[in-house]
Design a protein around this nucleic acid. Sequence first.
DNA 1: ATTGAGACCTGTCGGC
DNA 2: TGCCGACAGGTCTCAA
Length: 259
Amino acid sequence: MQDARFERVTLHRGDLRTRFPRRFRARLEGCRVEELARRAKYLLAHLSSGETLLMHLGMSGSFRVEYDGNGSGPASDAGRHDHVVFAMSSHATVFFNDPRRFGMMDVVPAGKLEAHPALSRLGPEPLSAGFDGAALAAACRGKKVSLKVALMDQRVVAGLGNIYVSEALHVARLSPHRKAATIATATGAPRDAAHRLAAAIKQVLEEAVERTTGEIYRASRFRVYDREGERCRQRGCAGSIRRQTQAGRSTFYCARCQR
DNA sequence: ATTGAGACCTGTCGGC
DNA sequence: TGCCGACAGGTCTCAA
């Protein structure tokens, strides 16, 4: 998609989680994609017009790219749940498929990106240098919610979802039920737990990126996620993985090694 | 302001 | 096989 132009944009329905912005097609067609980027769970395509195409996959969204050798049309017809089709000047056709329609797309004018409601309140990027135990402790200071719920809050740290919150808490050996505020001291200084947790978040995300970009794809082997009843994999721990609901979402953890 | 509950959608899976 | 409820990796809104 990068460096190619949008030649033809086709919408197969008018809404995902939100409605498409007005003049969606017109604002994309003819524009070149200058750069692809990401912020939290949002994908950004910076356009030659100065606007930015903002996209979110929701829970069930995906892109599929098909190539067409002679440029005479889309590689195939849009299938079920292919809500948006981008025909690119590179002869690639990009299909946005989203059965559940929890995804979203918007086009944001130049200079308005940081102020966009989806982005304006996001916390730090977990893989950035600015995110560390001190930053995490500061964000959790005074929070009465559990650590699990705090890490799901995109204002605390941006881009963690239900799976990697459970994974990170397991690596850090911290209970998901523990109050978020307990990883900071009364003065706000980080405790050891805050450093461990920040490092664990970076570790599980880096591993996840490696798994998905690398050639070696093993059937998803999470430490705790979706492993209810199975053995804990922490070295020397004889516990088994439990599942509990927190704020309406499943949390997986080992009650033995996570405190 | 913070927090928990419910809503938004459709698909899949396990149990009967 | 068919039906039904539970559940799914996210975010928003609303009420307490």
